[in-house]
Design a protein around this nucleic acid. Structure first.
Length: 864
RNA sequence: GCCCGGGUGGCGAAAUUGGUAGACGCAUCGGACUUAAAAUCCGUAGCUCCGCAAGGGGCAUGUGGGUUCGAAUCCCGCCCCGGGCACCA
């Protein structure tokens, strides 16, 4: 054993050992409890960043911990390899997305290997390979057969200069990121997956996921958004026909207060009204400018214009004016809303702006409304000025009004979901081709299963002006499978969320050539622990749950939820810097490439090292490819080694907490592992550990205290392991070494026994976090062949028995003394000791003790 | 704008879920070792007041209220930061 800790040497040795022994190859072993530990697979953006290291270290800690607890563990890894950044890189460097992606995978795989993760690489997959995405296509066709996939139009961001569809991310302040041109909305045909058919189950099944964080379940429940309300119609006459304008409301109790109706700009009635009204047509056109993002729609200035049409109030028969409002969403409800300025703040502001009447029809249960209203009264209350509904509370009013509408055939109660169907068509090259052929005679024809996969050509180089597949005659031109005549292949590709909705199943049978999944999926799934960033709390996790239910209903798998336990890792943040070029194009710069000066007031000035010119600061955000603010961990690994990097990132913050990246403190991790090494080296030199094999002898008081401390720390560490708070497990390891270094050093066989036991505990406790040094020390100290095979340590109850306990004494809730009392001390004896304490005497100051609060074994509070 | 989190010393954090606030680590300062540096080891440390000292008191968990014998923890209002908002992944 070398005297100095040489992480690179021992890490290489340990990794070669694991490689040679195929230590992490997972086999289906019936009868042994299995544990499927899964970290979200990375997008191969080029290099790992700290968020990846954090994610995969957490997963590895859980993997190795469960392995030592006796589970048959699977921890796989793969690549979420389709996506937009590859196309952006292609435009910037004129390299094909495929080559860029495969090069990145090769580099990042080396980085992952150098971190020593216990991964079963034999199951590696990349979603851009035909043997993976063919099953996206295959399931798409099954869903099409079941009516779970359908085609309709959808709204996209359109860059009129590049003549291309833009991702939301590529729209900056309403303009295209490359051209700076104002973005327009455009309606195009798209394929949808009918996730709303599963809305009820996706919501209800959240309650059957006790292993998920509450916050994630709350977010999903709100996203699915079940609301109970009333769908009803305003009758009207147009072009000599009697028609109905439908709306949905959760506040039917306020229906008498309707003073206008507002339509989305895309509403068919708006288009009809605009036919002879150029001003309105222009306004509708204006509404179609700007991005499709909900955050933009919700924050923009509320604007409206009258259509000149009126409809009839279904209960009062009043004439109600119809407006077009830019804030009404076509995608939610009916694309039209009733306007009740008195009791909806948004309607109130709209009414004030356009001088529409405000009617108060709800009053508080206690007291009266102050009129005229200065803002909408949005609380539930009692109906007033509402004729026969006066005095009814919310529920009764809704019941009565729904019943009256129903009697007139103009409405009824209805459940409305906020969740929308999942549009999966992307007008992009680097994704799974949608397996459809367009035939002039037969229409949209599914590609037959026998012709799957529809293979994506890998040599296209996008240039930013639309999907390059459209220019590939060899891809586009084909025969109609139905009539055999020349036809055109669909060039849209699938949303990459399709890829990530089932990859965790494919790991179980990554080599299965003839089927999407096989019986091995039944062995490994569900995933016992899923680990990934909180940013995936809604979309990815919801789509995966949906996809699993679809596969279940197609008889492909026997379970309905993919992930039993979920750990949502906190984001790793870093500063963001950028420059905005003329024309609006934005370039982000990595903080590592900048010279940054900050003054005491927190202002900062940064210049690019390459040209010395200033760049702008854009606050902090998640490390990402798009904001170019990732920190490459490679420098850390090269300098300190994998164990120190892993220990540091585990040590520095609890897994679920957001972490602002800073490497301050990494020297502490390095110092700890060096101290551990030196301590172990000394033990090896003087042979204390080997000499101490055998049962624990009778211990003198000092050594019993050391042993107590070790076992108490272990008890706490195991508790923290169980609640996934790994930072304090690392803290416990440091405390153990501190305790050992403080322990009496005489060459006493009893002392050797305590130290030998403590080191075996410490090394096993550390082995999930710092597996290489643990592997090495376990062997050097002669505990066995490999720490991986050792059982997880449990505290010895006998070591945790104490003769004396410490009690805190408070007077009026403030700590005034500590006392040590024998463990068996009775209540009276303790009370005498407490009252005799001079500091307690002083603070009681002769006043009578009114109350004594006792927390057994911990605290006594005297109230005077 | 809407939904979900978070805010504790100079910094990362802990506090077993209402019971000693600041464990453990970083940085800082002082000391030891060394020709020197690095490394290593020892010590100190929230703020503030009284005291030569030993020691003792007060104030402190973003902010303002409230509940409680007792609040970082529970309740109400506000401020700031992060995540998501359906085409970034």
């Amino acid at each position: 054993m070398e005297q100095k800790y040489n992480p690179h040497l021992i890490e290489r040795e340990a990794q070669e050992y694991w490689e040679r022994t195929r230590a992490f190859r997972a086999e289906e072993t019936p009868g042994k409890p299995k544990y499927y530990c899964l970290s979200m697979f990375p997008y191969p953006s080029g290099k790992l960043h700290m968020g990846h290291v954090r994610n995969y270290t957490i997963g590895d800690v859980l993997t190795r911990y469960h392995r030592m607890r006796g589970y048959n563990v699977l921890q796989p890894m793969g690549w979420d390899a389709f996506g937009l950044p590859a196309e952006n890189a292609a435009m910037a460097n004129e390299v094909a997305p495929a080559k860029w992606t495969y090069d990145n995978i090769a580099y990042m795989k080396r980085q992952l290997r150098s971190l020593g993760f216990a991964l079963d690489w034999s199951r590696e997959l990349a979603t851009c390979k035909p043997d993976y995405y063919r099953w996206n296509q295959w399931l798409f066709l099954r869903m099409l057969e079941k009516g779970l996939v359908y085609k309709t139009t959808g709204t996209v961001n359109w860059d009129p200069v590049d003549q291309t569809v833009l991702a939301n991310e590529q729209v900056i302040d309403g303009r295209g990121w490359r051209t700076g041109a104002p973005v327009e909305k455009r309606e195009i045909p798209m394929y949808y997956m009918a996730i709303t058919r599963y809305a009820e189950e996706l919501l209800a099944a959240l309650e059957k996921l006790p292993g998920w964080p509450e916050r994630v379940k709350t977010m999903q429940a709100n996203w699915i958004g079940k609301s109970y309300g009333v769908r009803f119609a305003f009758p009207y006459e147009l072009d000599g026909r009697n028609e109905k304008l439908w709306v949905f409301t959760t506040r039917a109790d306020t229906i008498i207060g309707v003073t206008f109706v507002a339509l989305a700009a895309e509403h068919p009635l708006a288009a009809r009204a605009a036919k002879d009204n150029p001003q309105l047509a222009a306004f509708i056109e204006e509404c179609k400018r700007g991005s499709v993002m909900e955050a933009d729609l919700a924050t923009m200035e509320k604007k409206g214009m009258p259509t000149g049409l009126t409809v009839t109030h279904p209960l009062t028969s009043e004439k109600i004016p119809v407006w077009v409002g830019n804030y009404v969403l076509m995608a939610y409800g009916e694309g039209a809303v009733m306007g009740v300025p008195g009791h909806d703040q948004r309607d109130f502001e709209f009414a004030v702006e356009y001088r529409l009447p405000v009617k108060a029809v709800i009053k508080p249960v206690e007291g009266e409304l102050e009129l005229p209203l200065k803002e909408a009264y949005v609380e539930h209350g009692l109906c007033v000025n509402s004729g026969r509904y006066d005095g009814l509370d919310y529920e009764r009013a809704v019941d009565a009004i729904a019943a009256d509408l129903k009697a007139k055939g103009l409405g009824d109660k209805q459940v409305l979901w906020r969740l929308r169907d999942w549009g999966i068509s992307r007008q992009r090259y680097w994704g799974t081709p949608i397996p459809i052929i367009h035939c002039a005679g037969c229409g949209d024809v599914p590609v037959p299963d026998s012709e799957l996969p529809v293979v994506l050509p890998e040599d296209c180089v996008p240039d930013g002006t639309g999907n390059p597949l459209n220019k590939r005659a060899d891809f586009v031109n084909c025969e109609c499978p139905r009539c055999g005549k020349p036809a055109r292949r669909e060039t849209d590709t699938m949303d990459t969320f399709v890829d990530s909705s089932w990859y965790y199943m494919r790991y179980a049978c990554a080599d299965s050539p003839d089927s999407m999944v096989d019986q091995r999926v039944q062995y490994w799934l569900e995933v016992d622990q899923y680990i990934g960033g909180i940013e995936h709390a809604i979309l990815h996790l919801l789509y995966s749950r949906f996809w699993t239910k679809v596969m279940r209903d197609l008889g492909l798998v026997g379970f309905g939820e993919p992930f039993t336990h979920l750990l949502t890792q906190g984001m790793v943040l870093n500063d963001i810097y950028f420059r905005k070029a003329e024309g609006g194009r934005i370039t982000y710069y990595n903080p590592a490439d900048l010279d940054i000066q900050a003054d005491d007031a927190g202002n900062r000035a940064a210049t690019l090292k390459a040209d010395g010119k200033p760049v702008e600061y854009d606050g902090i955000g998640t490390m990402s490819k798009s904001k170019n603010n990732g920190v490459d961990p490679q420098e850390l690994i090269d300098h300190y080694g994998a164990d120190i990097a892993r220990f540091f990132i585990i040590f520095t913050s609890p897994p679920e907490m957001t972490l602002m990246w800073s490497d301050a403190g990494v020297d502490g991790a390095a110092r700890f592992l060096r101290r551990l090494w030196s301590y172990a080296h000394e033990l090896v030199q003087n042979g204390s550990v080997k000499a101490a094999a055998g049962p624990m002898p009778e211990l003198p008081k000092k050594l019993a205290e050391v042993r107590f401390e070790i076992h108490a720390l272990l008890r706490q560490a195991n508790y923290d392991m169980g609640r996934l708070q790994f930072n304090t497990v690392a803290h416990a390891a440091i405390k153990m070494l501190n305790a050992l270094e403080r322990a009496p050093r005489d060459a006493d066989p009893a002392g050797d026994a305590v130290i030998a036991e403590a080191m075996s505990i410490l090394i096993r406790l550390l082995s999930p976090i710092t597996p290489h040094i643990a592997h090495n020390l376990w062997r050097e100290l002669g505990y066995g062949e490999e720490v991986l095979a050792a059982p997880w340590p449990e505290p010895d109850p006998a070591a945790l028995v104490q003769d004396e306990i410490e009690l805190v004494v408070q007077v009026n809730g403030r700590k005034r003394a500590d006392i040590r009392v024998p463990r068996e001390a009775g209540h009276d004896a303790v009370q005498d000791l407490v009252l005799a304490h001079p500091s307690v005497q002083k603070h009681i100051n002769g006043q009578p003790v009114k109350k004594v609060v006792v927390v057994p074994g911990k605290l006594i509070n005297l109230v005077v």
